[in-house]
Amino acid sequence: MRAPFAAVLALVAMPAVAQDGLSGPDAFAGVSDQSQRSVALFEEMGKVLTHPRCLNCHPVKGGPTQGDDMHPHSPPVVRGDADFGAAGMTCNTCHGDKNIRLTGHGSIPGHEPWMLAPVSMGWAGVGLAEICAQIKDPERNGGKSLEDLFEHNAHDGLVGWGWDPGEGRTPAPGSQELFGALTRAWIDTGAVCPG
């Protein structure tokens, strides 16, 4: 486990180029049409957005999923009124403010906060075009402007968890820095959604 982790760390130092399955904005410089370039940038962002590390807590129906195969969460949990589980069994019954390494093997993920994305931000099984439309819509994205969105993607801690998910989980591709750079470039090219 140590070697690949070290490799990821090394790559984080080079944000603008392709790393670990995610290309930087430079890779799309050759797309001359700005609108097409914007779409291409979002599709690249989509590799992060649709990664199991993100989708598992962005369900459309039911509760969260787990693992790279996105199987139902065990033990069974429900969304609850506040996207935070049921009375008597909320997300923080098990999850804490950081990943906890377990003896034996694996870890239990954690971050502050740790909860489900609202139903309006459900992505699991949804196409990229619809995800894009949702992300841009302040009615459905928590009232965020595009600049807020950049800030969120580039620096939010829970988003960043996707690249530091704890032992036993595949990190999201690339890095948060690269994901931020893609978001910046996507916004700067007009934040065009896939058709």
């Binding site: 033990p75 069974p76 949990v77 429900v78 609850g80 049921a86 009375a87 008597g88 069994m89 019954t93 098990c94």
Partner: peptide, 26 residues
């Protein structure tokens, strides 16, 4: 512990409330 937590939050739980609150207790 889970049953008390449930009743502190929901005074007259339904079967579904019970299933949800007790789902993590084998």
């Amino acid at each position: 512990m889970s049953a008390v937590a449930l009743l502190q939050a929901v005074s007259a739980p339904s079967d579904e409330d019970i299933d949800n609150a007790m789902a993590g207790n084998v």
